[in-house]
Design a protein around this nucleic acid. Structure first.
Length: 366
DNA sequence: AAACCTTTGAAGAAT
DNA sequence: ATTCTTCAAAGGTTT
């Protein structure tokens, strides 16, 4: 597993690269924060892109170039964070899910109101990840994993679930510990979690046998997936009716990566601060805030993402990211691909000239 | 109505 | 082994 790559030795070079960027990010952050509070919002919006270009990559003029440059940096950067994460994991794997920072993470995002009995608030374990204070969607991706949903009666579950062939991807003790219930919690997650460990067990519209939709599963309608998901959350009968109408095969979405989890948590906060609503702009801010995070702060999300992937893998052993390839139709990308596939358009400008010589890149690459 | 935009990270495909 | 592509979320914008 890539994220477990101990990184083969934390080369100090990584740190050397990390530091300047981080400072840069912090500066940006300060600027950004000031912008939120002092700058006219319209100015902020209009200057957002320019500002980011100036701050992040002075040599770059085109947004696309920013993207490319960052991609080049990205891998190194992510590797470094994996290193950081590994460091954290080294500390946490032994006790992470038995305690502290992340124990019961899936429940962390759960408003107390959703907690079993309403009494077992994991507040003591809450990390800053908690979202409701920002008006975030209370039902985060991991909500369905909560014991609130596990609770509702294993009686609903097929008796032979754990005996289903092909779903015996080894159950990591790590994971079962990770999703362990609070002491005194009502339900107990079966060690195997096999009761909902295969997509085949899901209804036509991605409903869990318990009636709780898994966040990674959406009806394959393409558009308005999220709306449907939200409706599924709150209107069960309606959903059931729809379930009958839609024999379509459910789409299992990719598990969220660290940054996506971070975005999900922070989006509402950023929107509240700057009143921007345009996701593209918000995401730019979030990207910069992400870089401004400390390693430890980021490590939290890498760890959460790792658990997400683990659980996703257990829930849908046969799922592959490839399954969703081609589900989205592209308009512009195709053009870009065409230009890239052009024999006269060298794809490897970045590799050839490096990020510091982007002026030597061909037009499309710039 | 559907794709785009914009971000980072993970996975898979391609080279 | 390295590079490239696609998708994950989100919601206003563009086509």
């Amino acid at each position: 597993m890539p994220q477990l790559n101990g990184g083969g030795g934390d080369d100090l070079g990584a740190n050397d690269e990390m530091i300047p960027f981080k400072h840069e990010g912090e500066q940006d952050e300060k600027i950004q924060e000031n912008a939120f509070t002092e700058r006219d919002l319209a100015d902020l919006k209009s200057s957002l892109v320019n500002e980011s270009e100036i701050n992040q990559s002075p040599n770059v003029t085109a947004p696309g170039a920013v993207r490319r440059g960052q991609q080049g940096y990205q891998r190194v950067y992510s590797d470094k964070h994996r290193d950081a994460l590994d460091e954290v994991s080294k500390h946490q794997d032994g006790g992470l899910y038995k305690a502290p920072a992340y124990s019961g993470y899936p429940f962390l995002m759960l408003p107390d109101a959703y907690l079993p009995n309403g009494s077992m608030s994991p507040s003591s374990n809450k990390v800053s990840v908690v979202q409701q204070s920002h008006g975030m969607h209370p039902l985060t991706p991991l909500l369905p994993y909560s014991n609130d949903h596990l609770n509702p009666s294993p009686a609903h579950l097929p008796a032979d679930i754990n005996q289903k062939p092909g779903i015996h991807r080894h159950q990591s003790q790590d994971l079962s510990g990770f999703y362990s219930l609070p002491p005194g919690g009502v339900g107990q997650i079966p060690p195997s979690m096999g009761w909902f460990s295969h997509s085949l067990m899901l209804g036509p519209s991605g409903m869990h046998p318990t009636g709780i939709p898994h966040p990674a599963i959406v009806p394959s309608t393409g558009k308005h997936e999220h709306d449907q998901y939200d409706r599924n959350m709150y209107s069960k009968p309606h959903q059931q009716a729809k379930q009958e109408k839609e024999p379509k095969k459910p789409v299992i979405k990719k598990p969220l990566n660290a940054f996506m989890l971070y975005m999900k948590e922070m989006r509402a906060k950023v929107i509240a601060e700057c009143t921007l609503k345009e996701s593209a702009a918000i995401n730019q801010i979030l990207g910069r805030k992400w870089h401004a995070l400390t390693r430890e702060e980021q490590a939290k999300y890498y760890e959460l993402a790792r658990k997400e992937r683990q659980l996703h893998m257990q829930l849908y052993p046969s799922w592959s990211a490839r399954d969703n390839y081609g589900k989205k139709k592209r308009r512009k990308r195709e053009k870009q691909q065409d230009s890239n596939s052009d024999p006269g358009s060298p794809k490897k400008c970045r590799a050839r000239f490096g990020l510091n010589q982007q002026t030597d890149w061909c037009g499309p690459c710039r």
